[in-house]
Structures are given as structure tokens and as C-alpha cells.
Design a protein around this nucleic acid. Sequence first.
DNA 1: CTGGAGCGTCTTTTT
DNA 2: GACGCTCCAG
Length: 661
Amino acid sequence: MPRDRQTSEKAAGGAPAPDTEDILKGLNPPQVEAVTHGEGPLLILAGAGSGKTTVLTRRVAYLISQGVHPGSVLAITFTNKAADELKTRIEALLGERAKGVWAMTFHSACVRILRAELPHLGRSGGFSIADDQDQTKLMKQVLRELDLSEKQYPPGGILHNISGAKDNLLGPEEYARDALTFYQTKVAQAYSLYQKKLQEQDSLDFDDLIMETVLMLQRHPDVLVKYQAKLSHVLVDEYQDTNHAQYELTRLLASAPPHNIAVVGDDDQSIYTFRGADIRNILEFERDYPECHVVKLEQNYRSTQVILDGAWHLVSNNIKRKDKRLWTAREGGLPIAIYAAQSGEDEARFVAGEVEQLVLRGVRASSIAILYRVNAQSRQFEDEFVARRLPYSVLSGRRFYERKHIKDAVSYMRLLLYPKDLVSLDRVLSEPSRGLGPAAFDKIAAHVREAGVSVADALAAAAYIKGLTAPQRKAAAEFGGLLAEVAAKAETQPLHHTMNEILERSGYLRYLDAQDPKDAQGRLEDLNEFMVSARVAHENGESLQDFLEKCSLASEQDNYDEKRESCVMGTLHSAKGLEFEAVFLVGLEEGLLPHARSVGDNHQLEEERRLMYVGMTRAKRLLCLTFSWTRQMNLGQSGVHVSRFVSEIPRELLEVRTWEG
DNA sequence: CTGGAGCGTCTTTTT
DNA sequence: GACGCTCCAG
């Protein structure tokens, strides 16, 4: 979207009630049409860089200026960062009057609804959220109990199937009923036991958050009516990436006439079918709502014509797409650069050198991005950047929370809030070692499940748990006492004090400190950073629950801060919705992009192509493609081929670069 | 039964 | 190159 518009919004501050003219300032005719559309369903087909965030922002502002209550607007985005940006920009337009808009992700919205409504339905609203590591841990337990080998039934594969079932709103019974193959019947068994285990510890996984919300709305018409009335205007960003459950959720909320649902999407940017995203949702919106109004945004405000042409030629090779072509008023542009490297290291050297040059020429480092297919590719670029002392930041908020010591710290905190969180107990019971190993854990866990008591209570009553030795009983009681004591203080004490106290008194900090110094230093630094974020959360008035929720639902982009002057590295998926002056698309090789696991299946191959399309269209002015003739794979060097996608871009748009750049 | 040392094993993409 | 898992001593 045009820069001047963004800045004028940001500069507006807490403007008083703006009139329609302000809200429509600088918009082109189709954008105005989308923003001012009245009651009823609206489909906005918005190409890359066509200003869809601006349209979404202005539409929310427009609705509120027309008298819609801010608390009645639900604007669903894909990432927390996008939600924050939406909120900030709406506030810039409307000031105080924007307070109360529901701008959040599907998952956050569902957590909010579930926490508010489950208690009225006789269920717990204090559930914990299981992330993928927790899920894997649980699934391994399930497989052990069902006597299925992990070799034959990889936990990840089973979980993928279960996730797919939940995305389609199929519970364990429905899945079992539909199971045809032998494998599926095994998955069905695992699914059923897995759900039982989740329930036992009062936990929901990511997919449950959506599915449970939908089921609740389906089963309790009174709740549905309440939310239909409350959230009278629903807007969905990145609609092409919604799965069936998410589709059903928005459909339910908007099922009362006049169906005030506005969705924004682009079928060419659908890159999440592996997660159940169904491109048909956007292609069939018109069928679901025959009366819907359709607006197409085809003017691109981001990239040069050369970049758009290259991207269009590429994506045109997809058969399953709506025909359309972006255009821009900015003609021409520099050719798309392409560099053939000798090796992965050479590729990293070249890119780092180019980045240095660009920065010298005045391009802000934070507006330069290196995008790749798989996370593992970041390493060689990181190494090169470190060697050259170039600042960079990796788009992977999740990675931070996935580090073992951070997960441990989170688990300690979770034990203070979620009384039955056995997965967390499992993590921390022997970190540091206190004489309680896996066998002791099993006994304690069994007691929690059978007696229905909390973890802290079970530990405190360790004397009654069969099979524990005297020293173990003592250690368990001590640990239980500590948990209970800190949990009680946590209610009044600042978050970061609680964190420090539990990590200190449990011996975790000392335990980390005693590790190999070269590991310990980084880990303690991470923990320090984590405690700072707890302090910030406390200062923002967040509760322990808010904080832990944020940790669970944090996403890749959340730690991307444009103000930090560092070059951005991230996967193509994580670059969704972002834009940069210069983009380096690296590792364009057969096997990487398209990924080896996608070749052979036309649908997956088309998705890989869209992924490349998304990457290319992130670039405003400079786009550079690189690949290497050899690459260090698992073991040993291997020769590779240039990605087929490169040859789908017309030669005349490309400029070949050699070693010296 | 716990806890440390060493060995194979993977690495698509994510809320 | 990080991690989980197995094996073995205490």
C-alpha cells in the first residue's frame, strides 16, 4: 500500500471523530467500494500489495463512524502482529472510539469465547493450551499405552491425521466411524485416547480451540444467538488460508441475516493447505452467499512492474486459479537479479555482500529480507552475518519458546496456574534432578488422574502414593509445598517476581548455571530476556493466564520489529503479509523449492509455486534469486538442479549476476 | 530406579 | 548440529 497513506494514519494520533472523507482519503475506487459497502456479505479479492490491510482498517473505521459499536466488530487476522497493527491503525484513525474492537487471531478469539462460556456449561474455563511439543509428548504416551511402535506409527504422522480430523470438525467417534484402512483404525484409537488424556489434564490443543468453539455454538443455540448479536460484523483477513472449522466458525457467527461478513483473500497466496486450509472457501464464497458483493483490488502499490510481471508469469502456470493480473502505476524497475552460487557458503557470502552494499547505499537494513523454504537454511546466513558483524533478526518467535530452557521455565509457570498440567510436571520434575525420575512421575500422574486432585496436592500427599521410596516422598512433598506456596503468592505478586522466585527456589537457575559455560551463558541470557518480557507483561496489566496464553499462541512474526535496524531472515511462510525494499529468495533448487516432498503431486506443486509467488511479491524494488550448484545435505555434498520455477520467469526480466555481484 | 554418558536420528511449511 | 533415546553404573 502507498507509504503516504500509512504515515498519515499513524501521524493522526488520537484524532476526534473523523468524517467519511478522512476515512476514504487516498483510496482508489474499488477500495472505496469495499470500505463503504453497506449491510450484507462482501468478498474482497485482493492481490498481493493491493492495500488490503488499508481497506480492512478503513472498513472497520467506517463501520464505527456509521454507528456500529466497536465491541461488535470482530476482525480476524492470521498473526498477532497483524492484529496489533490493525488495532494501532484503527486507533490512529478513530482514537478512543476504537477501543473494544475484537482484532485478533482465530485462536485468540476462540480462547476468549471459550474462557467466557465454558463455565456456564459446566466445564472448565481454566484450560491450558497444548503446543506441538506437548502434543507429541502426549501422543508418545498414547502409543506406548496402545502398544504401537513409534517407528511404525510416527507420532507426528498420527497427530497430523488428528489435526486434519479436527480441522474438519470430526471428533474421535466420527473419525472412527469413517476409518477405512487399518492405519486409520489405529489413528482412531490413538485419537480417542489422546483426547481422553487432554481432558484429564484440562488442556486443549490448537485445533481443539477452534473445534470446541464451533461445537459449542452448534450445540447451544442460546450461546450462538448471543455471539451473533454481540459480534454483528465479522471481517476475515487471509481468507484463502482458513480451514473448514474456521470457515464454519465465521459462517455460524454471520448466519443471521443480513450476514455482515466481509472476507479478504487471494487464491494465489494460499500456502497453508498442509494445515487444512481449503482454497475452496474463497472460490465458493459466492456460492454460499449468492447475494454477496464482490470487489476486486488489482492495482498494486508495492512492487515494480518487472517484479509483478515475473511473479505473474510464474503463477500463471497454476491451473487451479482465478485469472487475474496485477498492475501498477510505477512502470519499469530493475531486472530481477539471479545468482548461481558454487556452494551454500558462497551463496551466503554473496547475499551478505549484497546486503552490505545496499546498506551502504542507504537502504535500511530492516527493509531487506532473506527468505527461504525451510528453517534449517537460516544457519549459513546467520553464520555469515555474525562473521561480518551484520545485524539480523530471524522471523521465528516460536523458535524462542521452543528452546528447551524456555519451555522449562514456561512449564514451571504453568504448574502454578493449571492444576492438572501433567505434561508440564513431566518436563520439570527431573530438571533439576531431585530424585524423582520417569517411574516416580508415572505414579504421581496416576494419582492425579485417579484421585482427580491437583498436581500440587498430589505431591503434598506423596506419603499416600504407593511405590515411592521415603526420600522420594520427602522430595515430592517439598516440591509440592514450593508450588503451592509460590502459586498462592503469584496472585498478588508481579509476574516477573513470581517467575524469578519459582526458578530460583526450584533450583532451576543453579542447575542451568552449572551446565557447560558455553551453553549456560546463552541460556541464562534467554531466560533473562524472558523475565524482562514478563516484567513488560506485568506493566501492561497482564495476568499470569494472559502471559502464558501469549506464550502458547505466539507466532513467527511477533518478534519482528521494523524499528530494529537489522536485516530480516525467515521462511517464505513467515513472510506472509510483510513487505521489503529488497528481497533475496535463496536456495531455489529442485528439492528445496519445490520441496522434495511436494514433487509428484500436482496440488502440492502448485502450492510450492504459490509460495514462490508470495516470496517474489514481498519485494518493492529489488528482487534477487539465488541457488547453488551443490549443497551440503544430511551427509556429504550433493549436486542439485535449479528450481523449475526459475525457468518459468521470462529471460528478459532476469539479469545474471556472477561472483563479484 | 535414577541420572550421566554416548549413540543414532532426523530437518517442510505453522496457529 | 540439536535432540531424543538407549545403555550402564551407582
